[in-house]
């Protein structure tokens, strides 16, 4: 599917092309982060709304559009997590979703899906960035706001944990 013609010429043109090019990446990242495909869709839409507002500030010299969009997506997801936490506290019903209730991507084996779902969001997001989106260490570090060495460490721990969970599930 292609995007329709836009009303604001150059600005919207470049943004629409960027959005289309990186929609799957942003969506995939959010799916891994939230374990919820429906929620990921909503957050992806919100991400692109924010991105459109901030599009004038985007500077390609400071990082790729994909990295920039992932940063916005992360902020959007964190805002959602905070809001959700506050809501849970208000309701005094802290009910972390069970692994079984998760909605991970299709095509994964049940063992891998279960193991991924058992990881924390922080572990899943580093796997998403480095394995799924294949960002390099620098780009992933930019998204996460940490150093590239810390990204490597975090990824290594997440994969080890994932492997352990896979063995348990098997």
């Amino acid at each position: 599917m292609t995007l329709p013609a836009r009303r604001t010429p150059a600005l919207s043109a470049s943004f629409a092309a960027t959005a289309e090019a990186h929609l799957d990446d942003v969506y995939g990242y959010l799916v891994y982060l939230t374990r919820d495909r429906m929620l990921a869709e909503d957050l992806a839409a919100e991400t692109f709304e924010k991105a459109l507002r901030l599009w004038k500030r985007f500077d390609p010299r400071r990082g790729s559009a994909r990295t920039w969009l992932c940063q916005i997506a992360r902020t959007t997801a964190l805002d959602w997590f905070r809001a959700e936490e506050r809501r849970r506290r208000r309701e005094e019903a802290v009910a972390r979703p069970d692994v079984a209730e998760t909605d991970m991507p299709e095509g994964l084996s049940p063992e891998l899906e279960g193991a991924l779902a058992s990881l924390s969001a922080g572990e899943r997001e580093v796997i998403a960035l480095r394995i799924l989106l294949e960002l390099d260490g620098e780009e992933a570090a930019r998204v996460l706001g940490i150093r590239p060495t810390a990204v490597s460490t975090r990824l290594s721990r997440a994969l080890t944990k994932l492997e352990e969970r896979m063995i348990v599930h098997v």
């Binding site: 995007l3 604001t8 943004f15 629409a16 959005a19 929609l23 969506y27 459109l52």
Partner: peptide, 14 residues
């Protein structure tokens, strides 16, 4: 559906 939503967002004036 998501593509449609994002496409609509992109054509809106920011």
């Amino acid at each position: 559906e998501l593509r449609e939503r994002v496409a609509l967002i992109a054509v809106e004036a920011p």
